[in-house]
């Protein structure tokens, strides 16, 4: 379905968006810097908390920093590449969503690439820096498995975030007033995953593990990387969940694409 030619077209659509953004250099630079600062503040909060307490949910500062960094990198990749689907509500309101439907390409692909957000990449730098520092600082015995798990965590995490993004953006096909709910799940989800989920109450843990699979973005695979106790001891879950992120990512994609398609069908039957 997606051949080399299609990817080349998407690359050009992304290029067009980036050139458009560069047309407003000062604004672009400002957004880039402010994204770094704002997300940096998130981490500052964590650092402040650790000046008062030694451990959070049993995790050291460097371990939480690793979790924060891995989730942050995954999130910012998803935000940059697919976060543009947020604009669905605006596009539907303005009637400019229709233009992607008269073109011979996937509506989702066009929306994501036309709204590709390079300006959001500021978070990538910030979270990337935290991740590198944390990888150096965490006291683990590095094995091949653990080393490989880091990029797998990030890739699967980015896909899971992306799926949540698409699924929540698709709500706009039903109502264009529910964008806030979508943001609550994407940005809110990212915020929650920065901490070990053991600090949350049981219902929130279950929500993150089973409904919106955010626990698979950071927490479960990090247990393996950090050499911490298997989740079976705390959650009653088999230790295989530590390695399940790619499977969960694939499932999340399937669910998100189904929601998107049902939504698009609904939009095309109501046109409003």
């Amino acid at each position: 379905m997606v051949d080399v030619g299609t990817i080349a077209v998407y690359r050009r659509l992304i290029g067009a968006r980036v050139r458009s953004d560069f047309g407003f250099r000062a604004s672009f630079a400002f957004r880039l810097v402010s994204a770094c600062v704002i997300t940096g503040l998130d981490f500052a909060v964590i650092a402040v908390v650790f000046t008062k307490i030694g451990r959070l949910g049993g995790w050291r500062f460097s371990e939480v920093a690793y979790l924060y960094g891995a989730c942050g990198v995954a999130f910012s990749v998803a935000e940059t590449w697919i976060g543009g689907v947020d604009y669905l509500a605006v596009r539907i309101k303005q009637g400019t969503f229709d233009r992607v439907l008269v073109r011979p390409m996937s509506a989702l692909g066009q929306l994501a690439t036309e709204e590709f957000a390079l300006r959001r990449i500021g978070k990538l730098f910030q979270a990337g820096a935290v991740l590198v520092a944390a990888l150096v600082a965490i006291p683990v015995q590095w094995t091949t498995g653990r080393i490989l798990m880091v990029p797998v965590t990030i890739a699967a995490g980015a896909v899971i975030y992306g799926a949540v993004w698409v699924a929540t953006a698709a709500i706009s096909f039903w109502t264009v007033d529910a964008n806030e709910l979508g943001n609550a799940l994407t940005y809110g989800g990212n915020y929650l995953t920065q901490y070990p989920i053991t600090i949350y109450s049981a219902w929130l843990r279950r929500l993150l593990a089973f409904v919106v699979p955010m626990a698979f973005v950071g927490y479960f695979p990090s247990l393996y990387v950090l050499g911490r106790t298997a989740p079976s001891e705390r959650f009653g879950l088999p230790s295989v969940v530590m390695f399940s992120s790619p499977v969960v990512a694939a499932a999340a994609c399937a669910v998100a694409s189904a929601i998107w398609r049902v939504g698009l069908r609904r939009y095309r039957s109501t046109g409003s």
């Binding site: 030619g5 080349a8 077209v9 050009r12 659509l13 067009a16 050139r19 458009s20 047309g23 407003f24 303005q94 009637g95 400019t96 229709d98 233009r99 008269v102 073109r103 011979p104 390409m105």
Partner: peptide, 27 residues
Amino acid sequence: VVFGQRTQLWWDLPLADSFDLLRHVYR
């Protein structure tokens, strides 16, 4: 399709760029 009220063109780019992008979109 031409919708008189809404443009199909890339708002912030030169007209020539829109034409070039459409060449790729429609192959």
